[in-house]
Computed example of a mutant assay.
Amino acid sequence: MNKLLLFLPLAALSLLIFLGLFVWFACRIEPQNGEIAVMIKKTGKTLPSEQIVAPGPEHKGIQLEVLGEGRYFRNPYTWDWQIREITDIPAGSFGVLVRKFGQPLPEGEIIAPSEDFKGIVREVLGTGKHRINPFAYEVKIYADLRIMPGNVGVVTNLTGKDVFAGTANNVQNSSGFIVDEGQKGVLATPLKEGTHRINPFIQSVAIVNIQSQRYEFTGEEAILFITMDGFSISLEGTV
């Protein structure tokens, strides 16, 4: 009996030490600065074959929400996880998100009309660090568009209603292929000087110099021509 009384405290202490070590080494999730943890549920409802991201924690599979830097504890029987680098968009750049999960896009569309559809997301990500699940989104990084003084940006919509599909064009005093907002084609209002973040899958921008230009036809650049009498005439001028 005395031996049993001595053994019980030792067994309890050993069990506590084992549980502590198990929780610390097997259950601990600790993303460092600049990292995220992507959570993967091992138990729950089975995902449909066409889905890659679980709609909620009640389903098996990759969870949309990620864990930021810090210390967390999860049951390793229920959860698995992967540590990934955070999405860092440098200064002077922006990011375009491409959603990998959701309903297929309507025919002829490339921009996701809502959060329920896969495809290119209309809104862009600004400079900084973003906790983006790499299994759910792809991030394409582009440089900011800078329009210098004396220039404007002519904007062309790459998506929208087709101006040749019979849709009325309501731009006042328009001519040629100037279109309304929401239609494919060149917009009437250009971008002014400054820094702009334009989703390149939605709009393209051509920078046009609007400063007055001066060109002198003098010296070797003078205009030369021969008269009917065979005389060479040099014409100088400024345009």
Rank of each mutant, 00 (worst) to 15 (best):
E115C: 02
P76V: 04
L16Y: 13
E85V: 04
G160P: 01
P76R: 06
K3L: 08
K140T: 10
I178V: 15
L187V: 02
I233M: 12
I226C: 04
M1K: 10
G44C: 12
I141F: 05
A26G: 00
L97P: 01
P9F: 02
M1Q: 11
S212Q: 15
I210K: 04
P134S: 14
M228A: 14
R122K: 13
A112L: 05
Q203I: 01
T227S: 13
F201M: 03
G70N: 14
N209H: 05
F231M: 15
E50R: 11
F73T: 01
K42W: 06
L5C: 11
R146G: 02
V163R: 09
F22M: 06
P113D: 11
A11K: 03
Y137I: 13
Q51I: 08
E50Y: 10
E58V: 11
H59Y: 15
L8D: 07
S204C: 11
G92D: 06
V205C: 01
A37D: 10
I17H: 09
V205Q: 01
E69A: 14
G126V: 14
L97E: 09
N33E: 15
V121R: 09
K161R: 12
F25K: 00
I207V: 14
G182E: 10
G20I: 06
K60N: 01
D229Y: 01
G185C: 14
A168P: 08
F25Y: 03
G128Y: 08
K100I: 08
P48T: 12
P113R: 03
G68Y: 15
V205P: 00
V96N: 02
I198E: 01
I141R: 08
G166P: 00
I89E: 11
I17Q: 10
T218M: 08
Y72H: 09
P190K: 02
G108S: 00
P57H: 05
Q213P: 01
L6D: 13
L15R: 05
G68L: 15
T227R: 06
V96Y: 02
S212D: 15
D180V: 07
I110F: 00
Q63H: 01
I132E: 03
L47R: 08
S114Y: 07
L191E: 03
K129S: 07
E69G: 13
D144V: 10
L235R: 06
K129L: 02
Q63P: 01
P106C: 07
I226Q: 07
L19T: 00
Q213S: 14
M228D: 15
A136C: 12
L158T: 00
G219K: 09
E123T: 00
E181V: 08
S234L: 12
V154L: 05
D229W: 02
S49T: 12
R84L: 11
R131G: 06
H59L: 03
V179E: 03
Y137R: 13
S49F: 08
G70F: 06
E115M: 10
I226V: 13
S232Q: 05
V239I: 11
I29T: 04
P9C: 08
R28S: 01
G128P: 03
F231H: 11
L15Y: 13
V124Q: 05
V98G: 12
Y215V: 10
L47W: 09
R71V: 08
L187M: 09
L158Y: 00
